[in-house]
């Protein structure tokens, strides 16, 4: 069974006829070819599929595509505006806050939503805030630093 839905994806209003059982993650990867969000576990435990829906960071693997009807969605691909990287993206590169890169899009989207909600997080708030995003490579230190740098820019 399929349902017709309409929503805003990275600033553009789009339509899609989706299978009811398709997850939001699968839809943005397969139907819109936005493959920045990854499926790391399919169970909401790793955060690699994190995207922002109506201002909130969500695990796209835990949402049905049909539920996206009427929402506003931003994926990692939507962070680059007019060819300019988001400050978080710049900071991740500058601080070497990535290694294999597989968790990186999800990690950045979680950080993005966190900073929108709380522009001046403490180090502890950052640690807790990204604890739903698993990274097996970095030991997280440089990720925390990269987010902290952008938070400090917010202060200034």
């Amino acid at each position: 069974m399929k349902t017709m839905i309409e929503f805003t994806l990275n600033g553009e209003v789009v339509e899609c006829l989706v299978d009811n059982q398709r997850t939001l993650l699968k839809m943005i990867r397969e139907d819109f070819d936005l493959t920045g969000a990854k499926e790391g576990c399919g169970a909401g435990e790793c955060g690699a599929c994190t995207i922002i829906v109506d201002g909130k960071a969500l695990n796209a693997c835990l949402v049905l595509a049909v539920e996206a009807d009427g929402t506003e969605i931003t994926t990692i691909e939507g962070l680059v505006v007019d060819g300019e990287l988001d400050p978080l993206q710049v900071s991740f590169i500058d601080n070497a806050a990535l290694q294999c890169g597989y968790c990186t899009p999800g990690m950045i989207m979680t950080a993005k939503a966190m900073l929108e909600e709380n522009p001046h997080p403490t180090e502890n708030e950052i640690r807790e805030g990204i604890s739903g995003n698993l990274c097996r490579c970095t030991g997280y230190k440089k990720i925390i630093e990269a987010i902290q740098v952008v938070a400090d820019q917010n202060k200034a």
């Binding site: 969500l58 835990l62 949402v63």
Partner: peptide
Amino acid sequence: VGSKQVRNR
């Protein structure tokens, strides 16, 4: 409960 993302849902 869960992660920030899970609790958002």
